[in-house]
Amino acid sequence: MNGAHDMGGMDGFGPINPEPDEPVFHGEWEKRVFAMTVATGFLGHWNIDMGRQAREQVDPAEYLRSSYYEKWLQGLETLLVEKGLITAEELAARKAEMAGGAP
């Protein structure tokens, strides 16, 4: 699809700004998203190309605004729901429960 991910040759994003002494992960949540994405890939419900496709389907404005692991998280949630491994309702309920449980 002609999505926001296909960005080779686009102008206007500004300079590259490499981060000196960059850590492998920025915060615990990135580690979890990385590990969950790799691990669930082995469940056999989708292949690597379906995984890429799920990330490409993130809304274009959202795609460009998000950090890379945010895109991974969005893609992972999409796949898990699409394949019926979890439901969006379950996820929302769990989030509400955990937000309430840890004020």
């Binding site: 700004n17 979890r32 969950m36 669930t40 959202e62 998280l73 992972l76 979890i86 996820l91 955990m98």
Partner: peptide, 22 residues
């Protein structure tokens, strides 16, 4: 490159909820 569409605490919660479910 460092922008986040959600504030980090909200993102952390979203990730924790997903992991606990999985």
């Amino acid at each position: 490159d460092h922008d986040h569409s959600e504030v980090p605490s909200d993102l952390a919660l979203r990730v924790k909820a997903l992991e606990s479910l999985l």
